[in-house]
Amino acid sequence: MISFTPADMDAIRLSAKVAVTATLVSLPFGFLVAYVMSYVPFRGKTLLEVLLNLPLTLPPVVIGYLLLLSVGRNGWLGQYLDAAGIRIVFTWYAAAIASAVVGFPLLVRSIRIGMESIDERLIQASRTLGARWFDTLFTVILPLSLRGVLAGSSLMFGRSLGEFGATIIVAGNIPGVTQTMPLAIYEYASSPGGERMALALCVVAIILSMAILFLHEYLGRRMGRRD
């Protein structure tokens, strides 16, 4: 029988906490960015598009390093946070931020696919019926792009669970503090005799991921029935 050490349990809990936080905090921003990209014409949209998708193609280590430079104590953002008494680097916040940055493009992409499948004339109809743009946003666009929001959230959640490269640089690998599941697995796998524990954590990761995918399927089906 395999028994997890308190540090392992912390890693599992932390992974879940980081993934949930990163997804929930990103959702409203992801939705707004998707709305702007889908419906608002402006100059430089292509450039923004490229920047938004950059985290998808950049090595996560690069993202982690850039984050370290910006939120580190002497970073352009970090110095203000430091003055306000907020420390990001080597805390679980850093892990959540790293996950959010890496997963954000996946979230935005899925929501956009949902939004762009909405018949634009429905939006026009709601405007002629007296709805202001933000009214239309919440009463027509949001409910009709819920599937995209759901798909984006589960993708992002899954991506956050697996985040490694950016996290290890900006949050470090401190057991009980910033050591998430992938980091714990990495540590077990690279130490002699840790194979069994590494495998056990792998099983936990598989179970968590499958649970997310099943939940996604279930909710998607319920929405499908309602349509």
């Binding site: 026009q124 405007r127 002629t128 202001r132």
Partner: peptide, 13 residues
């Protein structure tokens, strides 16, 4: 904006 015009539409669909 359309919401302030009080002109309603019935569309083809």
């Amino acid at each position: 904006p359309p919401n302030q015009r009080r002109i309603a539409m019935v569309f083809q669909h």
